[in-house]
Amino acid sequence: MTENSRASATAPAPEGASPGRSRAHRPDFAHLWDRYGILGVLVLMIALMAVLAPNFLTLDNAFNIARATSINAILAAGMTLVILTRGIDLSVGSNVAVSGIVAVLLWTGGMPAAVCVLGGILVGALFGLLNGALVAYLALPAFIVTLGGLTYLRGTAYLLTDGQPLVADDLGYQLMGNGFFAGVPVPVVLMLLVCLVLWFVLRHTRFGTEVYAIGGNPEAARLAGIKVRWTLVRVYLIGGACAGLAGVIFSARVMSGQPTAGETYELDAIAAVVLGGTSLMGGVGTVQRTLIGAMIIGVLSNGLLLMNVPFFYQLIIKGAVIVLAVAIDSLKNWKRS
């Protein structure tokens, strides 16, 4: 060994760092913020609401928040993968409507509940596949492809329902939205399940490593033998399947197929991903942090509601909090460089 190993390159790294997560090495503020900052924001938010909002700190309300967050969290978990590859999926909100409607249509058409659920998820996944194929194989910009998807899927939703809600009072899979599993609302269980699965996929599978690699450096990924296009297709397919599941849950919750379901949900999902610290430049981020991002949005909405803050103000506050959180994040990056 020569003596020219550099202090800057030999500081201890945090234990258990993973791709996209192993960042600074010094136990300074930037590092602490990196690892726990977003969790701190959530805890702070909960503490604040506990003081300000009446009846905030109850188990019932905790379930309310979790249930209200579940659909956004599921969409955001799928969106995390898409954004990790430097992409975006604006079509998930409209996809929620279409897949929910298809699930209800299958039920009214006499299919068993399980087929309706799987059918809804499958429809979502298929539109994800279409987005992915256009992005990967025709090299079209994801923003444009999925902006188109947002529009034509909404049109499809109206077409399938003739513009009217498709009510099904006897919906066989309604426990997907309103049921409980071991005392926990089913949508919450599904949310945790989706996040757990996608955490495992990103952290412990070959596909997960390929996702980070493609987002970090697409050309290097190709030259390292990764099948970039095929991986991208699977990423959008997973994002679409998450939208399909969210659509099924939504339709179960309201026991109907709503053509207006999921409007602007894509924006909430992107907000959760970004709040969770995933870089829009790709390659950096995790699903568990996205889940925390979604929770922050959920806690904030719920607290404002309990405080009887007028809806218009709720929107203004929510928007400001998102911008503020991202501003803090980029300020930290700016200071480090």
């Binding site: 760092a17 993973s18 791709p19 996209g20 192993s22 490593t209 980070y212 690699a213 970090g216 450096n217 050309e219 290097a220 990924a221 030259l223 390292a224 390659g283 950096v284």
Partner: peptide, 13 residues
């Protein structure tokens, strides 16, 4: 940097 490395990933990956 442009064609080979994933700068934000670990040495291992």
């Amino acid at each position: 940097k442009e064609q080979a490395l994933f700068l934000d990933m670990a040495v291992r990956d």
